[in-house]
Lab assay of single mutants.
Amino acid sequence: TEIRININGVTIHVRDASEELKKLIEHLLRLGADEKEIREVLHRWEK
């Protein structure tokens, strides 16, 4: 699944996002995570 996240005008594009990762990101956004925090989570997730 491919997702695009727009945070304050900055688009983060994620290829091959699992449903689990998608739910995690949606949850973090609801909690008010910023772009830097989302990128950090994505970076750690890929490892």
Rank of each mutant, 00 (worst) to 15 (best):
residue 46 E to L: 15
residue 31 L to K: 12
residue 18 S to L: 04
residue 25 I to D: 00
residue 5 I to H: 01
residue 10 V to Q: 08
residue 17 A to M: 05
residue 26 E to Q: 13
residue 42 L to I: 15
residue 41 V to I: 07
residue 34 D to R: 05
residue 11 T to C: 09
residue 39 R to G: 04
residue 15 R to G: 05
residue 33 A to M: 03
residue 14 V to K: 01
residue 18 S to W: 03
residue 34 D to Y: 04
residue 9 G to T: 05
residue 9 G to C: 02
residue 18 S to Q: 06
residue 31 L to G: 11
residue 27 H to P: 01
residue 47 K to F: 15
residue 23 K to R: 12
residue 36 K to L: 07
residue 16 D to N: 14
residue 11 T to E: 10
residue 30 R to T: 12
residue 30 R to M: 09
residue 20 E to F: 05
residue 35 E to D: 09
residue 20 E to D: 09
residue 31 L to T: 14
residue 4 R to W: 14
residue 29 L to Q: 05
residue 15 R to A: 12
residue 46 E to T: 05
residue 33 A to R: 07
residue 18 S to H: 05
residue 37 E to R: 11
residue 26 E to A: 10
residue 25 I to H: 00
residue 43 H to I: 15
residue 31 L to W: 11
residue 15 R to D: 09
residue 35 E to I: 13
residue 10 V to E: 09
residue 44 R to G: 06
residue 1 T to C: 15
residue 8 N to E: 07
residue 33 A to P: 03
residue 44 R to F: 11
residue 26 E to M: 13
residue 33 A to W: 06
residue 38 I to N: 00
residue 1 T to I: 14
residue 34 D to K: 07
residue 4 R to L: 15
residue 13 H to C: 09
residue 4 R to P: 05
residue 15 R to F: 13
residue 32 G to E: 05
residue 22 K to W: 13
residue 23 K to F: 15
residue 23 K to W: 12
residue 39 R to P: 00
residue 38 I to G: 00
residue 38 I to S: 00
residue 42 L to C: 04
residue 38 I to A: 01
residue 28 L to M: 14
residue 42 L to S: 00
residue 32 G to R: 01
residue 47 K to E: 15
residue 46 E to C: 07
residue 34 D to V: 07
residue 46 E to I: 14
residue 42 L to P: 00
residue 24 L to Y: 11
residue 7 I to R: 01
residue 44 R to T: 13
residue 3 I to G: 02
residue 12 I to Q: 01
residue 1 T to F: 13
residue 17 A to K: 02
residue 32 G to V: 03
residue 18 S to P: 15
residue 43 H to E: 15
residue 20 E to Q: 09
residue 3 I to F: 13
residue 45 W to G: 00
residue 26 E to F: 14
residue 26 E to P: 00
residue 38 I to T: 01
residue 13 H to K: 09
residue 6 N to Y: 11
residue 17 A to Q: 04
residue 42 L to H: 00
residue 47 K to P: 15
residue 1 T to M: 11
residue 41 V to Q: 08
residue 27 H to G: 11
residue 17 A to P: 11
residue 8 N to I: 03
residue 35 E to L: 08
residue 25 I to S: 00
residue 20 E to H: 06
residue 38 I to Q: 00
residue 34 D to T: 12
residue 12 I to F: 06
residue 32 G to Y: 03
residue 19 E to Y: 12
residue 2 E to L: 07
residue 33 A to D: 02
residue 20 E to I: 05
residue 3 I to C: 03
residue 34 D to P: 07
residue 1 T to L: 14
residue 3 I to V: 06
residue 4 R to G: 05
residue 2 E to M: 07
residue 24 L to M: 12
residue 7 I to Q: 02
residue 28 L to G: 01
residue 35 E to A: 08
residue 47 K to D: 15
residue 28 L to W: 04
residue 5 I to Y: 05
residue 42 L to F: 03
residue 39 R to I: 08
residue 2 E to H: 11
residue 33 A to E: 03
residue 37 E to A: 10
residue 6 N to D: 11
residue 24 L to T: 10
residue 43 H to G: 05
residue 9 G to L: 03
residue 35 E to S: 08
residue 4 R to C: 12
residue 11 T to W: 07
residue 32 G to A: 04
residue 26 E to C: 03
residue 9 G to R: 02
residue 46 E to P: 03
residue 1 T to K: 07
residue 28 L to H: 14
residue 24 L to I: 11
residue 31 L to I: 14
residue 22 K to V: 13
residue 5 I to Q: 01
residue 17 A to S: 05
residue 24 L to Q: 13
residue 6 N to K: 10
residue 19 E to C: 14
residue 22 K to D: 03
residue 1 T to E: 11
residue 9 G to P: 01
residue 11 T to G: 04
residue 7 I to V: 11
residue 23 K to D: 12
residue 9 G to Q: 04
residue 43 H to P: 00
residue 8 N to C: 04
residue 6 N to A: 07
residue 45 W to C: 04
residue 30 R to P: 02
residue 44 R to S: 10
residue 10 V to I: 11
residue 11 T to I: 12
residue 46 E to H: 12
residue 21 L to E: 01
residue 1 T to W: 14
residue 46 E to M: 09
residue 23 K to P: 02
residue 37 E to Q: 08
residue 26 E to I: 12
residue 26 E to G: 08
residue 30 R to Q: 11
residue 27 H to N: 14
residue 7 I to P: 01
residue 40 E to Y: 07
residue 35 E to P: 06
residue 21 L to R: 00
residue 14 V to P: 01
residue 23 K to Q: 14
residue 6 N to W: 07
residue 25 I to M: 06
residue 46 E to W: 10
residue 5 I to F: 10
residue 6 N to H: 13
residue 4 R to D: 09
residue 41 V to Y: 04
residue 14 V to I: 09
residue 13 H to N: 07
residue 39 R to D: 15
residue 28 L to D: 00
residue 31 L to F: 10
residue 24 L to E: 15
residue 35 E to R: 02
residue 35 E to Y: 13
residue 2 E to V: 09
residue 23 K to M: 14
residue 20 E to G: 07
residue 3 I to Y: 14
residue 43 H to S: 12
residue 37 E to C: 10
residue 34 D to L: 10
residue 43 H to Y: 10
residue 37 E to Y: 13
residue 15 R to M: 13
residue 16 D to I: 06
residue 3 I to Q: 02
residue 20 E to W: 08
residue 30 R to I: 12
residue 7 I to F: 12
residue 46 E to R: 03
residue 23 K to N: 12
residue 44 R to D: 15
residue 28 L to Y: 12
residue 10 V to W: 02
residue 13 H to W: 09
residue 8 N to P: 02
residue 27 H to R: 13
residue 37 E to P: 01
residue 23 K to I: 15
residue 7 I to T: 03
residue 3 I to P: 00
residue 15 R to W: 10
residue 15 R to P: 15
residue 36 K to Y: 09
residue 28 L to C: 08
residue 28 L to F: 09
residue 19 E to H: 10
residue 5 I to D: 01
residue 8 N to D: 08
residue 5 I to R: 00
residue 39 R to C: 08
residue 10 V to P: 01
residue 19 E to N: 09
residue 7 I to K: 03
residue 42 L to K: 01
residue 45 W to Q: 01
residue 46 E to G: 14
residue 13 H to D: 06
residue 20 E to Y: 07
residue 16 D to G: 10
residue 37 E to V: 13
residue 43 H to K: 15
residue 21 L to W: 02
residue 40 E to I: 07
residue 9 G to V: 02
residue 25 I to G: 00
residue 46 E to A: 05
residue 21 L to P: 00
residue 5 I to M: 04
residue 27 H to Y: 12
residue 11 T to Y: 09
residue 28 L to R: 05
residue 40 E to C: 05
residue 29 L to A: 06
residue 33 A to S: 09
residue 39 R to F: 06
residue 27 H to M: 09
residue 8 N to W: 04
residue 14 V to D: 01
residue 22 K to H: 10
residue 27 H to F: 09
residue 39 R to K: 09
residue 36 K to V: 10
residue 40 E to S: 05
residue 42 L to A: 02
residue 37 E to G: 07
residue 28 L to I: 09
residue 44 R to I: 11
residue 36 K to G: 10
residue 27 H to K: 12
residue 10 V to H: 12
residue 44 R to N: 15
residue 10 V to N: 07
residue 23 K to L: 14
residue 35 E to C: 05
residue 5 I to G: 01
residue 39 R to H: 09
residue 17 A to R: 02
residue 8 N to R: 04
residue 45 W to D: 02
residue 29 L to E: 04
residue 7 I to E: 02
residue 2 E to Q: 08
residue 36 K to F: 10
residue 27 H to W: 11
residue 31 L to V: 13
residue 42 L to M: 03
residue 30 R to G: 09
residue 40 E to G: 04
residue 1 T to A: 09
residue 45 W to F: 07
residue 24 L to R: 08
residue 17 A to G: 09
residue 10 V to M: 06
residue 2 E to I: 08
residue 39 R to S: 04
residue 18 S to I: 05
residue 34 D to S: 10
residue 21 L to V: 04
residue 4 R to K: 11
residue 6 N to G: 04
residue 34 D to M: 06
residue 30 R to Y: 15
residue 4 R to T: 13
residue 4 R to S: 13
residue 40 E to N: 07
residue 33 A to V: 10
residue 38 I to E: 00
residue 5 I to V: 09
residue 14 V to H: 03
residue 36 K to N: 10
residue 15 R to V: 12
residue 24 L to H: 14
residue 25 I to F: 04
residue 4 R to N: 12
residue 25 I to L: 14
residue 5 I to W: 03
residue 8 N to S: 11
residue 39 R to Q: 07
residue 32 G to C: 03
residue 3 I to N: 02
residue 33 A to F: 05
residue 44 R to W: 15
residue 45 W to M: 02
residue 18 S to R: 04
residue 41 V to T: 13
residue 26 E to H: 11
residue 25 I to E: 00
residue 21 L to D: 01
residue 28 L to N: 03
residue 38 I to W: 04
residue 5 I to K: 00
residue 45 W to T: 01
residue 39 R to N: 05
residue 41 V to K: 03
residue 11 T to V: 15
residue 15 R to E: 08
residue 47 K to T: 15
residue 16 D to M: 04
residue 33 A to Y: 06
residue 35 E to K: 02
residue 28 L to K: 08
residue 20 E to M: 06
residue 41 V to C: 09
residue 5 I to A: 01
residue 17 A to L: 06
residue 38 I to M: 04
residue 24 L to P: 00
residue 2 E to W: 04
residue 17 A to H: 05
residue 11 T to L: 11
residue 14 V to W: 04
residue 36 K to S: 12
residue 29 L to S: 04
residue 13 H to L: 13
residue 40 E to V: 05
residue 12 I to D: 01
residue 30 R to A: 14
residue 33 A to I: 06
residue 30 R to D: 12
residue 33 A to H: 05
residue 22 K to L: 14
residue 16 D to V: 06
residue 40 E to W: 07
residue 31 L to Q: 11
residue 29 L to I: 13
residue 2 E to R: 02
residue 47 K to W: 15
residue 41 V to P: 00
residue 45 W to R: 00
residue 46 E to Y: 15
residue 45 W to K: 00
residue 31 L to E: 11
residue 10 V to S: 07
residue 2 E to T: 11
residue 13 H to T: 14
residue 8 N to M: 09
residue 47 K to N: 15
residue 13 H to P: 06
residue 44 R to H: 15
residue 4 R to H: 13
residue 3 I to D: 03
residue 27 H to A: 12
residue 38 I to K: 00
residue 19 E to P: 14
residue 16 D to E: 14
residue 37 E to T: 14
residue 9 G to H: 04
residue 45 W to E: 02
residue 21 L to I: 06
residue 6 N to M: 09
residue 17 A to T: 08
residue 34 D to E: 08
residue 23 K to C: 06
residue 23 K to A: 12
residue 29 L to R: 03
residue 43 H to A: 15
residue 9 G to Y: 01
residue 33 A to G: 03
residue 19 E to T: 10
residue 3 I to A: 01
residue 36 K to H: 11
residue 21 L to N: 00
residue 32 G to L: 02
residue 41 V to H: 06
residue 2 E to Y: 06
residue 47 K to R: 10
residue 13 H to G: 05
residue 2 E to C: 10
residue 22 K to M: 14
residue 3 I to H: 06
residue 4 R to F: 14
residue 16 D to S: 08
residue 7 I to S: 03
residue 13 H to E: 08
residue 1 T to S: 12
residue 12 I to G: 00
residue 25 I to W: 01
residue 31 L to Y: 11
residue 44 R to L: 13
residue 26 E to S: 10
residue 41 V to E: 12
residue 3 I to W: 15
residue 7 I to D: 02
residue 47 K to S: 15
residue 26 E to W: 13
residue 21 L to A: 02
residue 42 L to R: 00
residue 40 E to K: 06
residue 43 H to T: 09
residue 42 L to G: 00
residue 16 D to Q: 12
residue 47 K to Q: 15
residue 13 H to R: 06
residue 10 V to L: 08
residue 27 H to S: 13
